[in-house]
Design a protein around this nucleic acid. Structure first.
Lengths: 156, 156
DNA sequence: AGTGAAACTCTGCGCCT
DNA sequence: AGGCGCAGAGTTTCACT
């Protein structure tokens, strides 16, 4: 499912991951291609699904969600129905940024953005009310050393 | 540090988090404001740092990085100098998406996007070569149930 | 504060190399 | 394939409410 990207595609994607508002003219000059060539490449990268979306990234602290929490969850039951329920429940919770099924087949990891401890507790209560949980433990982020949506495009 | 956002700001941010390419005209109609009012609000939200950036989100699998790995790290030493070294090293590694200092003051969590196990091992080797690590354990993501950059704006 | 219109920039697509 | 250019869309500024 890996698309074949050449040097130009990689340069375009590198720039667009940093700033999606870059005018085609500027982008073209920066990577050594005409606006038009850039435009056509971007179109096909979007069509191929390499570029999934262009979005605005917000500062969690400035919208009242300064606390990042990771929850480690052990499934109550190990069947497809439980996973489906769990997936639906977490997808429906907007403060949940990521949900991952980890190696081991029984452990799940959730990353969520909340206002404070009380807000975390609300999230926790909501979650356990909707899906039976085997075991839940939470770790709170004291300091965000790095956080990026930029992916490297050296090889590909 | 929380900005005061009204109903309109919240609607604008909700839309822009989903699609930053939305024309001002459409955005205005959708939330019940003129293009111009929207534009000025967006400008001040950017100036206030609420909107941090507008970026293109890529599909990791399509650029050859289908494997997500979480690394749990215990610091070798517990001092400011070690943390500084660790922060610099991880920030310089482009496959590292997030680095978090967790409650407990000795544990760090890294999220990285790699090509495969061999690629992970390269990352691991690079990291331990640059910073002395107390203990490192890795968990691999088998299934990404949810992954979003969208933050909720109900209260704020 | 928000609105409307005008000026300007950028993009999207055709055509040519 | 890449580059040029125009028509239309989108953005920014201005004057007014």
């Amino acid at each position: 499912m890996t698309s074949n990207l050449d040097e130009f595609d990689r340069k375009i994607l590198t720039e667009l991951q940093r700033n999606a508002d870059l005018p085609l003219e500027t982008l073209g000059q920066r990577i050594g291609l005409s606006r038009n060539a850039c435009w056509r490449r971007i179109r096909s990268l979007e069509a191929a699904g390499v570029i999934r979306a262009r979005v605005a990234l917000l500062d969690p602290a400035r919208i009242g969600l300064p606390l990042t929490v990771f929850m480690q969850i052990r499934a109550a039951l190990h069947d497809a129905d439980w996973l489906d329920k769990f997936a639906r429940a977490t997808r429906a919770l907007p403060e949940v940024q990521g949900v991952y099924r980890m190696s081991g087949d029984l452990d799940y990891l959730i990353r969520a953005q909340v206002a404070d401890m009380a807000d975390y507790d609300r999230l926790y209560q909501t979650l356990i009310a909707r899906v039976p949980m085997g075991d839940v433990s939470a770790s709170f982020v004291m300091e965000e050393i790095k956080h990026s949506t930029e992916l490297p495009l050296s090889r590909a």
